[in-house]
């Protein structure tokens, strides 16, 4: 990076660190923070959409659909979410390959599960073994995003289902009295009003989502935890220009501080949004705001 970095072994500590912190490997570490943010940016809206669909399904008057929604909501209760993470990544992968196998290789007659092996034809592999490394990484990341979205969608469905029930019944009855159909009542009356009830739960969910991002590591994505372990380990002079002892504790301290700062900033922003949204609402918090101003 800098011109004086040609021979790090002779540098004094500040210059040495300036060089060390700008090596290519460290740049990959910094980029992995982007991976985490990207995951959050994609997962949050997708999970919200899953959650909305789940909550709407649970409210449906069609019995099988409402069962489906309720099962989805109940799914995350009682079982550690990390189990779902580990489960869905393999299950989704195998499910997709199975479907492609059925479509692309109908003449294949051997069983797919042979003892401890899961065998599909080469054309059904995801991604194809001929595709470049980048596609493998994109596929792995997409699976992780989908897994996160399914699990957090279930959490969000739970929150939104509760919020939909919190909307005063009289509002819906009034809509019906005006002759609105079920669909109209749902979209014009229920959905616009539910957000203020959903926001505390959703902001809690956002914090939870932030704190779940290190689990990307378990799903096989090269995220910040992966790089902190890789880079922090003791390095000898034979393999690198920047030998150091075991620094993993410092790397993880940095991650700890990163997450603390991230959750703190989120908390402040969400509090502001909540204050803005409760303004003038007929809720306890809105009433408290009115009294404080008066």
């Amino acid at each position: 990076m800098f011109s004086f970095c040609t021979d790090p072994s002779v540098l004094a500590a500040p210059a040495w660190f300036a060089c060390y912190l700008t090596t290519g490997k460290l740049m990959l570490f910094y980029a992995s923070f982007g991976t985490v943010l990207l995951l959050l940016a994609i997962t949050a809206p997708v999970a919200l959409a899953f959650g909305f669909a789940g909550a709407a399904a649970a409210r449906s008057r069609v019995t099988p659909l409402s069962w489906l929604g309720k099962i989805y909501i109940a799914m995350v209760r009682g079982v550690p979410d990390i189990v779902f993470f580990l489960f869905f990544v393999i299950a989704l992968d195998q499910g997709l390959e199975y479907l492609r196998h059925k479509v692309k290789c109908p003449e294949w007659d051997e069983p797919i599960r042979q003892g401890s092996d899961f065998i599909v034809c080469a054309a059904a592999k995801l991604p194809l073994s001929t595709s470049p490394q980048a596609w493998h990484e994109v596929y792995g990341f997409s699976l992780a995003v989908l897994t996160f979205s399914i699990v957090f969608g279930a959490f969000a469905a739970n929150v939104l289902f509760g919020a939909m029930r919190a909307v005063p019944r009289a509002q819906l009855e009034t809509a019906e009295a005006y002759g609105m159909t079920h669909r109209q009542t749902f979209w014009r009356i229920l959905v616009p009003q539910m957000w203020v009830y959903a926001l505390p739960g959703l902001s809690n969910l956002w914090m939870v989502l932030i704190k779940a991002t290190p689990l990307l590591f378990l799903l096989g994505v090269e995220d910040i935890v992966y790089w902190a372990r890789e880079l922090g380990g003791a390095k000898t002079a034979r393999f690198t220009d920047y030998p150091h002892a075991d620094w993993r504790v410092w790397y993880f301290l940095a991650l700890l501080i990163f997450y603390l700062a991230f959750t703190r900033v989120s908390e402040i922003v969400l509090d502001r949004i909540m204050a803005r949204l409760t303004h003038g609402q007929a809720t306890a918090a809105g009433e408290a705001q009115r009294k404080a101003a008066a």
Partner: peptide, 22 residues
């Protein structure tokens, strides 16, 4: 309370393990 609630448990485990290791 802020430190333990504001950071992921997963990272806390890693940090504590490497701290004890050092």
């Amino acid at each position: 309370i802020f430190v333990f609630r504001g950071s992921p448990l997963f990272i806390q485990f890693f940090f504590a393990y490497f701290l004890f290791l050092s």
